[in-house]
Design a protein around this nucleic acid. Structure first.
Length: 997
RNA sequence: GCCCCGGUGGUGAAAUUGGUAGACACGCAGGACUUAAAAUCCUGUUUACAGCAAUGUAAGUAACGGUUCAACUCCGUUCCGGGGCACCA
């Protein structure tokens, strides 16, 4: 009998399925524990080895917690709405629902092969009407709620209506409100709803035909595809996430996210504390309101800058400057967002002719407009302090505006210094104060004089919530006379109508606008945009708790039982998208009383990315110019002509060049330094000479390789080749490549030796880079258990690392070694049957020590997600047990329990071989007994001045004095101490001994 | 530019959080079993020097400096790599 992982894994996977071993109940006396993976988008490419990394980590944790006596919820589902399926539909005409279904089946089959303990009966799919019914319902909750600024939480909008109609507010009385038209009332309410619609500037991407959220735009181009993005005014839906900015920030204190993750979210929210204050404009009855975080620098203000879009610009511009300002505004309008973002270094601006007054010293301050001030942040106007702000400084220098220094020697005239530690000068009532202290003093004064007030600003904007796309949740909204009317709950789900075509509708609307029967209702017109990808994923963790409920999205009893997600595993790429949105939705649902917690994820573990190692062939376009041709003889010309005809290219040919040859080509253009390079140069010169002076022809033999070594090539690029065609020595199987890949059929492979060496690079793993490694193949070759353990052994879960298949042998060997603790190996050569070696002998203390050492280590490492060292601990244990010839059931069965979260199949198999009761899935986790770890004596390293010199064996209860005596009796140490005076003696119990001389 | 996180053998990485640096594995080299291969097992593997050898001595965690009896770990400066934000006043 030998370790036949294929049979074992098939057998147990079937058994677990048949017995519903992973089914989880909401009725259990056990404490609950919720382990969640970020659910995947089911792409057509299937899984690669990078995907399961996080899934394996969470699976191990779930199984571990189950053994520890918890009722563990560990579900899986699919984020199945999204752009790729729709893009695919556009290209092939296949309905997204069909391709999505197919992809999900592939994913599930692949996942099951790895042996995950998902309760598939709880599977959710965001594109399933029975799921998005509730996404729509929660949207309506958002629509029907507002953020109450006094209670700091979401309340039903009906309460606001009630208040308006009985008390009014600061803008209007109750009577006025009641007199407003329906449309007027609706508009006012729309300004308070958590999900609201407004005309706004949106990121419009012409190529994708849709509007993108801020975080889907990078440097002015779309995140997916890199298409240009411009501003466009459209009616859009938004989520009022800004209302929750403060609570999203505070909530971070209560969750266990990595510091980096918290920092990213904080940056995104971008809270800044400062004040708003007004600068009166000379000779005009108006004032400019600015926002600043540094009111302490008020006496250093040398000019004000307005955003070009600021409403006061036309009003304050003086006659003399009108033409220039108009010209500048035209210029600004001509600049796309992309230009403005990419050319931040460029300093532009224009003087308005107007002067404001510094309220503290009456100094006149020129007012400018400039691109670098954004209309959308703060008040759209700033007070510029050139000595303290680098941008203001650059602006002042550029336009020769005099600079006031208020920080003395901290300002050197060369660059601004944004310190808060300087002592203020030239600053009136703030003189002599430290800047950081002056901030509060200045704000107090500003409030006292009633020229401004404290103000907190956020960088975060409300989140765009509509997409002009087909494959997403339809909005349960009908527009009646420009008023958004929500559907009733009993009309949900509003199903996505079946489409034949997926192209955009008229006027920038989505594909749904083309379906007139569906859009036009007696009451009005349906909303035609659909919800973005993050709608369904913002709440899916709740649905797993109660996946089949038809009354509500998740029964309060279920969410109270499971509570927060205890451990959430996923990548960092969702730091500011999904994670912020789901946190906001959770807070809203909490405010409205649907759930009892306001942070969805207690602890977040970010798995790293597994990168792929791509292989390339270098392709050079080799140009046979007339000059070169002239120097060739008839044979050579004939050869070139054959090549030209072959590749159907009269002037040049493209040739795949081996990496070693590329190196040679590059090296030959350097100054020759080493012998090798000199050799190459010499070689090259000889070929040149040959080409230029055909007389010397006999000096060297001419062939294609030689030409390539020195030829001026006009074109160089690299093509990815499938990684499976390249062996571990980087040699390409190019015969096979040519056979199976038509792209290379027309290419000649040129190399110095007979092997073709590819170049390598670590990149993101993806289908297009043909560098993916399929987990199925590894599972077939080594088994799921080996695959699981190897992925964990690769390094810390949080770390990104390139995939390397080589090391997997080591883990596989460990499992085989483990098997041999139970069954002596069968030798296939002699065909000797394996025999049982495990026995019922009573373990010795030494045996127990191995066991309990392992229990301690595995428990610690599993709790800390330090799986790589846990795997190492298993290997050590197996080695030690083998060395000790310990094949005892009492020990081995306990080791199997420890192992079962990591390698469930082999653990279950051997568990049943030991004829232990029941399934190992429900075994009790071994209890650590420290007594076996206690040692009578311990080896103490002895150092002199911290330098290791020897070690001595001492009883663990040794006192310092006894240790000192022992050290002084040690010959090696005495030799080192010869002629030196002992100054101090340091004894760390159980650790070490150090002698200071 | 700003904010995080890193830098340890040929490779992936460990290090009880200040206490014997390199666990565990890969790779490589040598050996055993075998007609042979596969599989398995054993030995060695940071570097330099000395020695037939066991072993010894010195240096060594990006670089330099500091604190300490003792530093991969703490502090300072510099260099390199990765990630995030980017005119946010």
């Amino acid at each position: 009998m030998e370790y036949n992982f294929r049979e074992i894994e098939k057998k147990w996977q079937q058994k677990w399925k048949d017995t519903n071993a992973y089914k989880v109940s909401n009725d259990s006396p056990k404490p609950s524990f919720y382990v969640l993976d970020m659910f995947p988008y089911p792409s057509g490419a299937g899984l690669h080895v990078g995907h399961p990394l996080g899934y394996i980590a969470s699976d191990i944790y779930s199984r571990y917690k189950r053994l520890k006596g918890f009722n563990v919820l560990h579900p899986m589902g699919f984020d199945s709405f999204g752009l790729p399926a729709e893009q695919y539909a556009l290209e092939t005409g296949q309905h997204p629902a069909v391709t999505t279904e197919k992809n999900i089946e592939t994913f599930k089959a692949q996942l099951d092969k790895i042996g995950f303990c998902y309760d598939w009966s709880r599977e959710v799919r965001t594109s399933d009407p029975s799921y998005y019914k509730w996404t729509q319902k929660i949207f309506l909750e958002l629509f029907n709620s507002y953020f109450c600024n006094t209670q700091k939480k979401a309340r039903p909008i009906t309460e606001l209506v009630e208040k308006y109609s009985t008390k009014g507010n600061s803008q209007f009385s109750a009577a006025e409100w009641n007199g407003y038209s329906k449309k007027q009332q609706a508009d006012i309410l729309m300004n308070r709803r958590l999900a609201f619609s407004k005309f706004g500037e949106v990121n419009w991407c012409e190529a994708l035909g849709t509007v993108l959220a801020n975080d889907e735009v990078l440097n002015g181009v779309s995140e997916r595809g890199g298409h240009p993005v411009e501003k466009k005014k459209m009616r859009q839906w938004y989520l009022r996430i800004t209302a929750y900015a403060d609570r999203l920030l505070q909530g971070l204190e209560t969750v266990q996210f990595s510091d980096a993750m918290k920092e990213m979210q904080r940056n995104w929210i971008g809270k800044s504390e400062g004040c708003e204050m007004e600068f009166g404009i000379r000779d005009l009855d108006s004032a400019i309101k600015v926002y600043t975080t540094r009111p302490d620098t008020i006496f250093g203000v040398d000019f004000l800058v307005l955003a070009p879009e600021h409403s006061l610009v036309s009003q304050i511009t003086t006659e003399t400057e009108k033409a220039k300002i108009a010209e500048y505004l035209t210029y600004v309008k001509s600049r796309s967002d992309r230009e403005r973002q990419s050319e931040v270094k460029q300093i532009t601006g224009c003087f308005t002719g107007a002067y404001a007054t510094n309220p503290f010293n009456g100094k006149p301050i020129p007012v400018w407009i400039a691109e670098y001030v954004l209309a959308g942040y703060g008040t759209g106007a700033i007070m510029a302090v050139p000595c303290g702000d680098q941008r203001d400084f650059a602006f002042a220098k550029h336009f020769n505006i005099p600079i006031t220094n208020i920080i003395g020697e901290h300002y050197n005239g060369e660059e601004a210094n944004s310190t808060k530690d300087a002592t203020l000068q030239n600053s009136g009532f703030l003189d002599g104060m430290l800047m950081k202290d002056a901030i509060t003093v200045a704000i107090n004064k500003i409030e006292e004089l009633a020229i401004g007030k404290r103000k907190v600003n956020f960088r975060m904007r409300d989140a765009g919530f509509s997409r002009q796309r087909y494959w997403g949740e339809p909005f349960p909204i009908i527009w009646e006379d420009e008023i958004a009317i929500p559907l009733n709950e009993n009309e949900l789900p509003l199903e996505l109508p079946h489409a034949e075509k997926y192209g955009p509708g008229p006027n920038g609307e989505g594909p749904l606008a083309n379906m007139e029967d569906w859009v036009n209702k007696a009451e009005g017109r349906r909303e035609t945009s659909t919800m973005p990808g993050y709608a369904g994923s913002s709440w899916y963790f709740l649905r797993y708790m109660d996946p089949t409920n038809t009354e509500t999205f998740c029964d309060r009893k279920a969410s109270d039982y499971w509570n927060q997600v205890d451990v959430y595993v996923g990548g960092t790429e969702h730091a500011v998208g999904h994670l912020l949105y789901s946190r906001m939705w959770t807070k809203v649902l909490y405010d409205l009383g649907y759930i009892g917690f306001d942070e969805p994820f207690k602890k977040l573990v970010n798995q790293g990315m597994i990168q792929g190692v791509s292989a390339f062939v270098n392709v050079i376009g080799f140009y046979f110019g007339a000059n070169l041709m002239m120097t060739l003889d008839e044979d050579q010309k004939k050869k070139i002509k054959i090549l030209r005809d072959k590749y159907n290219d009269p002037e040049s040919i493209n040739i795949c060049v081996s990496e070693d040859l590329m190196k040679f080509i590059r090296i030959s253009y350097l100054d020759p330094q080493t012998e090798e390079q000199k050799h190459h140069m010499d070689y090259q010169n000889r070929i040149y000479n040959y080409l230029l002076n055909p007389v010397q022809k006999d000096l060297i033999q001419f062939d294609l390789d030689d030409i390539l070594k020195i030829a001026p090539f006009n074109n160089y690029y690299r093509i990815h080749v499938p990684i499976e065609y390249v062996n571990h020595k980087d040699e390409l199987d190019w015969e096979r490549l040519k056979l199976e890949n038509t792209k290379f059929l027309e290419k000649e492979f040129v190399t110095m030796s007979n092997t073709f060496i590819c170049s390598r690079e670590v990149e993101k793993m993806s289908k297009s880079k043909v560098n993916t490694i399929n987990p199925d193949e590894l599972c077939n070759k080594y088994g799921a258990d080996t695959f699981r353990m190897y992925e964990m052994f690769l390094g810390p879960v949080e770390q990104s690392k390139p995939w390397d298949t080589k090391g997997i042998e080591g883990v596989h060997r460990f499992l085989k070694k483990l098997w041999r603790l139970f069954y002596a190996d069968a030798n296939p050569a002699t065909n000797a049957p394996g025999k049982q070696v495990w026995n019922n002998e009573t373990p010795t203390d030494a045996d127990f020590k191995i066991l309990h050492k392992t229990i301690k280590k595995i428990e610690q490492d599993t709790e800390n997600f330090s799986y790589n060292t846990a795997v190492a601990a298993f290997m050590i244990a197996a080695n030690e047990l083998a060395d000790a010839k310990c094949y005892k059931k009492e020990i081995l069965s306990q080791i199997l329990i420890l192992l079962s979260p990591y390698a469930p199949h082999i653990a279950e198999e051997l568990w049943s071989a030991l004829s232990c009761d029941g399934s190992i899935l429900d075994a009790a986790y071994p209890v650590l007994e420290e007594k076996y770890l206690l040692e009578a004596t311990k080896e103490y390293p002895v150092s002199i001045n911290g330098k290791m010199r020897s070690s001595i064996n001492l009883p663990t209860d040794t006192t310092e004095e006894e240790a000192k005596q022992a050290v002084l009796a040690n010959e090696v140490i005495l030799k080192w101490l010869e002629g030196k005076e002992i100054k101090k003696f340091i004894f760390v119990k159980g650790r070490m001994i150090n002698v200071v001389v």
